[in-house]
Write a protein that binds this DNA or RNA. Structure first.
Length: 192
DNA sequence: GGGCCGATTGTT
DNA sequence: ACAATCGGCCCG
């Protein structure tokens, strides 16, 4: 996979759609991170998961809280949360404002000099994404974090499975990844 | 204020 | 298989 194709900036409209659609369509899009010293790190999205307000495993399931308010806010913003006392996970906010939804970005195919971007916490560590970037506008190329679109992964290259690491709604097929991509975090969800 | 648990990862 | 490690959220 390469970046020679024409890339266009993510739009609010792209993210305002159904979370499952956005999760599938974010495959092949590129995440860009500008560091304080102005260097830019980039990686191709190869694995995603959808979370919605009707989904018992979603942080927004029990309504608006200090943390979940980001999920109920406008689409195309970053939702970054802290988990297990040591890790961060990065999501793209979806659905119209006042409807909660997000796509967890689980793995990137790194673009040099990035590495170790397989897994939601590893990719945040590699791209230096912390809660400081919560609610950042992902359609702003002048900001610290944005996404470009351009390559659509054909349906025959997309696999969907159950999600990783959750204890409820374990039967939803809401995880998407690019088949045969070696940077996907795990091939199959852990079996019970 | 207390206690439980988690959208993970690295080590045993 | 399990520990690390702490913020969010529920309960009282």
């Amino acid at each position: 996979m390469n970046l020679t194709e024409q890339q266009t900036l993510l739009t609010r409209v792209f993210c305002e759609r159904k979370t499952l659609t956005v999760a599938r369509d974010l495959l092949g899009c590129v995440l860009h991170r500008r560091l304080d010293d102005n260097t830019v790190l980039s990686g191709i999205i190869v694995e995603t998961e959808a979370y919605t307000q009707d989904d018992p495993s979603c942080h927004a399931y029990r309504g608006v809280t200090p943390r979940s308010k980001t999920l109920y806010g406008p689409p195309a913003k970053a939702y970054v949360y802290f988990i297990y006392g040591m890790y961060h996970c990065f999501n793209v906010v979806t659905e119209p404002e006042h409807t909660a939804g997000a796509v967890l970005i689980r793995a990137l195919e790194p673009v040099e000099p990035l590495k170790n971007t397989h897994g939601p916490a590893r990719l945040c560590k590699a791209m230096q994404i912390t809660r400081e970037l919560n609610e950042v506008d992902l359609t702003d190329t002048d900001g610290p974090l944005w996404i470009t679109t351009g390559v659509r992964i054909p349906d025959n290259k997309v696999k969907n499975t159950t999600r990783i690491g959750i204890s409820v709604a374990t039967d939803y097929l809401w995880r998407f990844y690019i088949k045969d991509n070696k940077h996907v975090s795990v091939k199959e969800p852990r079996k019970k």
